[in-house]
Every structure is written in C-alpha cells, then in structure tokens.
Write a protein that binds this DNA or RNA. Structure first.
Lengths: 384, 384
DNA sequence: TTTCATTAGTGCGATTTCCGGACGAATCGG
DNA sequence: CCGATTCGTCCGGAAATCGCACTAATGAAA
C-alpha cells in the first residue's frame, strides 16, 4: 500500500472544494458565485472565500461582463467568474502515410491554425519528425503546453516505440520521445484509430456515447475502442487490431506475420490494386470516392464487398462488446457504398439483440479526425 | 446535472474519514488504532475519536487478543479493532441447465454450506425458482443480507428480464424480481459467463489481473469480459456473446435467430450428438471427460476441433481487446484437449504481438465458478 | 529490581474550515 | 421612490482536525 506524504485532512477538504469549483468552471464555462453555490452544494460563504482565494492565486478571474440574475429579471446581476485562460496552447500532429498535418489549438480545443503537407512518411521516420517539428514551431504563436501526436502504427505501451514490421522506416523509433527532443515540450503519441475515436467522441459523431467502436478504413484497417467513455488500450497497448482478424486460412501473408488477415483484403492499396486493371486512368483514393459517388458499378461492387467483410468482423466484435455505436471513419469511410455495406453486414451477422442496440454511422470529422484527436489527447494529458 | 441534497461539507469529511477507516479494516483485517493512523494519514486523535464513534454505533469492535507493537518488541502492545461481523450472510444461487446449486457464505466470501440438486431447469422457470428459494431458506442459518444469482441466459440490462429465445420456460421472466418476492431480500442476477469471470477474478486463476476474457464452454458458449478490473456488460448488458460469432454462412440455424453461430458447432449437446453414434454406451459430459483423460482418440479429436474453433474466434477477440489472460471454464473447460487446442489456436491466429502478451489458462474453480461468482456479486452489491 | 526507551491510546486547547444569518449592493417593476 | 429579488461579503458559532501533554503497558538495559 503506497503511503504518500499526507496533507492535513482539512487542507485536503479545502483542496477538494477548490477542485469542485474549478472543474465546474471548466465544464460549464463562466458563471456567477451563486451558480457555483447551486452547482457544488457548498454555502455562499465558502464559495465566496474559495473564489477569493482562487482569484488571489490567479487561477480564476472576474470577467468584465455581468450575467443575468438566476430567475426572473429582478435582482442584482451577478459578477461572473471564469477560469483564467491557461497559458500555453497545444498542438496536434497527424502523421499519415502520405502527409503530415499539424493543428495548433487553445486549451479548450478550438483550432487556431491548421496545415497539411504531402510527404512520403513510411521510409524515413527521422526526416519526417524533423519536418513536423519545424511545422509546429512555425505555426505556434505562443509556447505550447503539450503536443499530441498520431502515429499510423501500433505503439508498445511500455517503451512507446513503434512495433516492428509495420512502418519500415520507423522501426524501434520512439516518436513521442523524438519529437519531445526537438520541441522541448511534453509529447503524447497514440495510433490513428485511437485518436480518431477520441476525436469523434469529443467533437464528432460519438459525442455523449460511452461504448463506441471507431473503425478506420484507410491505408490500413484499425479500430479505436471506447468503453465506459474511456479508450481501451489493452494489456500491452495494442488493442483494436481489427485488421488482423482472421478471414481466410489460405489468404495472403500479412505484414504482421500472419496470413489471412482482414487487412489483406480491405485497405486502400489493396482496393486500388483490385480496381486499377479495369480503368484506363490512374486511380487514387479520391478518384475512387468520386466514381463511387457517381455510381460507377465496378467501384461500388468492390467497396460493397470490402464493407461486407469489415461488417462481418465488426459484427463478431459487437457481439462480444455490445456497443451502442459504431463510427466508420478513415479516407474510405467517406464512401456511401462502404458505409452501407458495413451497416447491412453488421445487422445481418450480429446477434439480433446486439444489432437492435446498435447504430452504425459515418464519422463526421473526415480526414481531420486524427489531428483533432491528437489535440484532444494533448489537452487531456496536460490537464492531469 | 443531478443535484442531490447536499450534506454539510464537514459532515461529509467525517463520513469520508470514517469510510477510510472501515475500508482499511475491511481490506487488511483487524489492526490497531496506531496502524490505522499509519494507513490513513489521519492524526492519532482523529482516529481515536472516529474509532470511538464506530464502536459506539457497533460497526467496529475491540478484539480480545492484542497485537505486537509496531516495530521491535518494545513498547505498549496495541488493542486491536476489527469490523464487527456484518449481520446477515449472503447466498449465491447458480441455476444451470440441469441443476440448481446454492451456497451460503459470510460477508467475507467464506462459503459455509453448499448444496447441488439436479433439476430440469429449462422448461419451467417458476417451479425452479420456487425450489431454489426453498433451498436457500433451508440452508441459511441467519437472515441474509443479499443473494446473488446466476442465470444461464443473457439478461436485459434495463428490465432484468431473460431475453427471448434462449430459455423457453423463462421467457420474459425477471428472475431477480421473482426470487426477491420469494425471499424478501435483495437479489442480484447476472449470466453464467459474467459470474464465472467475477469468480475467477476474485478467487481463481485470474486473481490480480485487470484485462481478462473468461470463456465458458458448457451447454452454451459465452464469455465474461473484464476490462480494467471491471466487468464489461455493454450498452444493453449483453456483451460477451462469443457463442454467436459467425463461423459459417451456411451453418445451422441457431436459437438466437441467426445461422452459422459458433455455438451451433461447439456446445455440450452438440459434441455429445457428434460422438454418440460411435459409442455403445450412453455418453454424458462427465463420461466424455473421462474418455478424454484416458486418451480416447475420437473424443480427443472432437474436443480438439471444438477448441480450435473457439480459439479462432477468441483470437479475433483478443486482437481487438489485447487482454493479458484468457481463462477457460465451464464443464468442458476441464478437458485438457479442449484447453490445449484453444491455446494453440489462439497463438496461431492472434497477431504475434497480441499473442505474446497473452496467457491462456484453465479456470481453477471448475463447476463451482458460477456459484462463487454469485456470492461475490451479492457481496459486491450489498457493500455499496 | 529499577530505570529507561518505546509504542499505544486519550484528553484538552488551538486552529482550520464550513455554515447560517445579517447586511449592503444592484437591479426590476410598480 | 419603494418594495421585491438576487448577489456577494462580513461576522460569529459549530464542527472537525491537529499538536501537545499525559497516562498506560511492555521490553531491554543497568
């Protein structure tokens, strides 16, 4: 049993009441002392004294504008107090396979600037991190409190290194540590599916939900799993490997070392390979999405088949987890054919009761999901 | 925001300190006031006053035997205080498909009496509950504080009713409510896989683990999923339906309404049906386990095949959840062939990194898992 | 045997914190 | 202009904690 140096119990009581006030202000924004009384259940006197103390230390400020009295229009208008804007913004860095995207935001998550640069990421991790660091430095207008980072590969929980075999030019690299060395501020990294899930949970289609599976269909196939409102990372931090579910014993050999992984059937490069022979033009993901929207039969067929395969694996997962929501994201998640096929397939293959409790919706953040999630991660970690 | 009637902050402080003392006593057993000082960080005076108060209300008693001074042998020996044995024991009721088992335990989980009666459960829920209630009444030597109950079917989270289609004679019945009506004490119900997981987590092979998948292979096939040390029940309380993962589009129609469910391939009745034609004697699960232990080739083959199928579905689940431990339980979980096949298959089909972080072990509670879990559930709920 | 050192537990006064009531401040409506 | 209403602060009392002093009980050393 860990026995930290104990502060006095009364001190801790006051500290806890201070936190009650600051966290209420954090959640509900500027409010009057009287509102704080109603929200915390403390007495007017105590709130007044605590707020005075917090103003003294600079953690809370009295705003210039005044509010309205609690009910009716009659009564003295309150003075509003708000959390002092925390110094230092945050940044999110999204490293995709073909681009680096950086967003700078304030501590509430409002994005102030965002930039994307195309880049060949897979081959040389060090060069990409150099470039990303320079981008962040250029865009930041003030010193940053923390940086969140999206890495398109599973990370080892302990060492925070990229696990072997997925990104050739990143082997045994610790991206968070490298970027921290370059920027001098705390850097927190997670993979694309987890951050996408965090983003849709906080600012997207999954707002307010507690049990959510976020599926990212892009260069790879992964899931971010939110249970009880919190990201589930697993014992060694590599939960969510939906792409490595087994779909055929005799399938292709996968980069993970197994064969028959779902990802060997469903991924952007694989689908482009399948389609290319039938088209004169050079296909890209963007072009495929256009063709899908225009009703091209071949594209629709391939995307539907892919969606069905994903939906089937998802149905199994949903039978086990019984989530309320599946969010389909990633570059290919924008395809209506894929989305519909996933939805249909989940409903077909999941147990009826599971399917009844479940909604399958497309993500609402598009290709910004990862960078928004990286910002969320930075804010979440710096707040602790 | 729910706004309960707030007690005074100081009252809550004292209440919280009282709880600190009682919960320390609950975890570490009888100890001196001085030990409580060291464990809580409160002052001697405060602990003395709180303990005095707790003794006054009868929640804590001074034991007859005295302890040893904190270090060395020198010094006044302390008086030990302990939680007063909470009045009222608990009972666990395990309703299997062919039996009812009842255990009566004290509030610490020590089983005082246990009895099993064979019974045809599936057809008539009301009669079974009558019989179970009578058993509990006979066995209880004091009034019970709560009863935990194992139902071999998924329960709806909201209504606590048995979901349609699994147990014919229990349709739309609320077992907890029914038993509560008969016994007059709070009754908490959950399904067999969840309670098995709870039991192995608290008193079995999964002690100390935080991310565990408990697989029950018996009349049906289900999983109890523990994430972050807590049971994951899902949005509508039916998580863990491993038996309804899809393994073949053209498979048999399952009782859940789908076709191709894993449970149509792997379950005690199904395996007995497969084996029976090749044997002159009447087979039972017990006999099959004997034959397996004796090395019977046919039995081993069938159990291995079943284990491989389960292991494959489990591997997919583990890829998604990245647990540290899989516990194999249920009547058929005692088969070494099945256990080995599951282990091998998980290692073969799970992603290498996932498999490396994972152990697959047999359960250590055997057919007592459910009833032990039911007792744990009763204790957990009554403590709150 | 006596004395000292050490740990355990309790009583008392001081301190900290919280709360309720009284009071002034600011605004609306009549 | 005055009452009603709400907001915020000041003051005194109540509750809880803590440090200190004191007694109790035991082992070890003299």
């Amino acid at each position: 049993m860990p026995s930290l140096p104990h502060a006095s119990s009364l001190e801790r009581l006051r500290e806890s009441n201070r936190r009650a006030i600051t966290s209420l202000l954090a959640v509900e924004g500027p409010m009057s002392r009287a509102d704080l009384v109603r929200g915390t259940g403390l007495s007017r006197t105590t709130v007044s004294s605590l707020v005075g103390e917090l103003i003294g230390t600079g953690q809370v400020v009295e705003t210039a504008d005044r509010g309205r009295p609690h009910k009716g229009g009659s009564g003295r208008p309150p003075l509003l107090v708000a959390l002092a804007a925390p110094t230092g913004g945050v940044a999110g860095v999204d490293i995709g396979h073909r681009h680096v995207r950086v967003a700078v935001a304030d501590r509430r998550g409002v994005v102030l600037a965002e930039r994307t640069e195309p880049m060949d990421v897979d081959e040389n991790g060090v060069a990409v991190l150099d470039r990303a660091a320079r981008l962040v430095e250029q865009m930041a207008t003030e010193t940053l409190a923390a940086v969140g980072m999206c890495v398109p590969a599973p990370l080892d929980r302990r060492s925070a290194r990229v696990r072997t075999g997925i990104l050739p030019g990143w082997r045994e690299l610790s991206p968070a540590e490298e970027l921290h060395r370059r920027l001098g501020v705390p850097v927190f990294a997670d993979n694309d599916a987890n951050l996408g899930a965090l983003a849709e949970l906080g600012h997207g289609a999954a707002r307010g939900a507690t049990d959510v599976v976020y599926v990212k269909v892009a260069s790879g196939l992964g899931a971010g799993i939110v249970l009880g409102g919190r990201l589930h990372r697993g014992a060694s931090g590599i939960a969510g490997e939906l792409g490595h579910v087994q779909v055929g014993e005799d399938g292709q050999v996968c980069r993970c070392g197994n064969r028959g992984c779902l990802e060997t059937l469903v991924s952007a490069p694989r689908l482009l390979d399948l389609l290319q022979p039938a088209y004169d033009e050079q296909l890209s993901v963007a072009r495929v999405l256009e063709l899908d929207a225009a009703g091209d039969a071949g594209v629709r067929r391939v995307l539907s088949d892919a969606g069905r395969a994903v939906g089937r694996a998802l149905a199994d997962l949903c039978n086990n987890l019984n989530p309320e929501l599946v969010v389909v994201g990633g570059s290919l998640g924008a395809s209506a054919s894929l989305d519909e096929a996933i939805r249909g397939s989940v409903e077909r293959y999941a147990q009826p009761d599971t399917a009844a409790a479940l909604r399958v919706v497309p993500g609402s953040l598009g290709d910004r999901a990862e960078v928004v999630g990286a910002v969320s991660l930075a804010i979440a970690r710096v707040a602790v």
